[in-house]
């Protein structure tokens, strides 16, 4: 009887957990998708970086994380993330990562139509020209302020992406192809 009661208590708790998760507004998927797993893995790695290379760290707040070229390409290839390009329209038209959304830093506002294409849980990779470009960081900060949960900064930017010969779009790419 003792073990049966334990089993019943556990089974009832399991049932309550499953039912609550089905009806809750704050529910999580029963099995995590690949993108969520990878996001967690990158976050964990970023949190264990030494202070000298950790760009922004605030354990009490949402934060964005640096992402390397190979990780950025991985999430690009698997279509796990949305890429945001904060450069101006001219530079964006010229060349950008394939499928990226242009949200120029100087135009950024919380009511921008392009922001509505993003869900708060989406994996978002922001990139800029190169590692010296501050617009990427400022867009990451703004997205965090707007409560986006999975924001990553691809520090190497379009320069490194181009150098690695990863997929690009834009008028320059068309010209070069011709």
């Amino acid at each position: 009887m003792f073990y049966l009661r334990i089993l019943i208590i556990i089974l009832v708790s399991v049932a309550m957990g499953i039912i609550y998760n089905l009806i809750s507004l704050n529910s999580i998927p029963f099995f995590p998708d690949e993108s969520a797993q990878l996001a967690n893995e990158i976050k964990h790695k970023a949190e264990n970086l030494p202070d000298s290379v950790r760009w922004k760290y605030d354990p009490t707040a949402l934060k964005w994380y640096p992402i390397r070229a190979d990780q950025a390409y991985f999430v690009f290839d698997k279509k796990m993330a949305k890429f945001i390009d904060p450069r101006d329209e001219w530079d964006f038209k010229e060349i950008h990562i394939k499928g990226a959304i242009n949200i120029p830093a100087y135009k950024f506002s919380r009511s921008m139509a392009d922001l509505k294409k993003l869900n708060k849980d989406d994996m978002i990779v922001v990139y800029c020209e190169d590692e010296y470009c501050d617009n990427g960081k400022s867009i990451c900060d703004s997205l965090i302020d707007l409560m986006y949960k999975n924001v990553f900064l691809y520090k190497g930017g379009i320069d490194e992406w181009q150098f690695a010969q990863y997929p690009l779009e834009g008028t320059k790419v068309k010209r070069d192809a011709e």
Partner: peptide, 11 residues
């Protein structure tokens, strides 16, 4: 992980 997170707090 998600199943664990859904069930354990209710137990």
């Amino acid at each position: 992980v998600n199943l664990f997170v859904i069930i354990i707090p209710w137990i």
